[in-house]
């Protein structure tokens, strides 16, 4: 599935400066109610966001509920953001809510990949600049920089992720360009590693 390409994001940044924000916290399992990638924004951070989840009474103490951050497209976090379950629902919920970038000290690798595949730009920065991002933040993926209040910091994203976000590419379509190469690899492998293929062939497979 393709998404809107991400080149720049300019927005206020919501400070949720905790370490180890896990995917259960981002989208609690109980909020994943259907076999769908949508309908998740309401459940984003449900355990923290609502005083009463049933009636959806907002907790005024939770940062996301403050008027000041309404419509913000950037979320700030601490270390190991997105740890825990591999559920892609965490990225879907963040994207549906309107986040286009997350700036954190570090990311869980599965979550990082899920962000990139859903048009959310993961930016790894040190704690000190993150704490300073309390005005409008401008992220530019083409130059790999974050700017705020006259200061600028570089960040690094791997080539593949960068290309995918900049072009909104569908990785499956990209890989299918190599279909012949994959087939040739398999023909060779099927002969070289008979033991790995044979159990899947014939009567055993039901």
């Amino acid at each position: 599935m393709a998404f809107q390409p991400v080149r720049t994001v300019t927005s206020a940044a919501v400070p949720l400066l905790r370490d180890n924000i896990d995917t259960d916290a981002i989208i609690p399992s109980r909020e994943m109610k259907s076999v769908a990638k949508t309908g998740l924004a309401d459940g984003l951070f449900a355990g923290w966001r609502y005083l009463d989840e049933k009636t959806r009474t907002p907790d005024p103490a939770f940062v996301l509920n403050a008027q000041r951050w309404a419509g913000a497209q950037i979320l700030l976090g601490g270390q190991n953001f997105g740890c825990g379950s591999s559920r892609e629902h965490a990225a879907w919920a963040l994207a549906e809510y309107g986040f286009r970038a997350i700036i954190a000290e570090s990311f869980n690798p599965i979550f990082h990949g899920n962000c990139v595949r859903n048009g959310i730009l993961p930016v790894a920065l040190d704690a000190v600049p993150i704490a300073a991002l309390d005005a409008v933040v401008h992220i530019d993926l083409t130059t790999q920089t974050v700017a705020c209040a006259g200061q600028e910091w570089p960040f690094h994203l791997d080539e593949e992720s960068r290309a995918m976000l900049l072009d909104g590419l569908d990785p499956i379509a990209l890989t299918l360009h190599d279909a012949d190469l994959i087939a040739a690899f398999e023909t060779h492998d099927r002969a070289a590693r008979r033991w790995a293929w044979e159990p899947l062939e014939g009567s055993l497979h039901d």
């Binding site: 599935m1 990638k37 591999s86 559920r87 892609e88 990225a91 690798p109 599965i110 990949g113 899920n114 595949r117 859903n118 791997d158 593949e160 992720s161 990785p171 499956i172 990209l174 890989t175 299918l176 190599d178 279909a179 994959i182 398999e186």
Partner: peptide
């Protein structure tokens, strides 16, 4: 290793994944 849903779709469709070397 564990993957996300989009990667699962990719693996199902192509029997490959685009993986950053750890």
């Amino acid at each position: 290793w564990g993957i996300g849903s989009s990667e699962a779709e990719h693996a199902l469709a192509t029997n490959t994944l685009r993986v950053k070397r750890p």
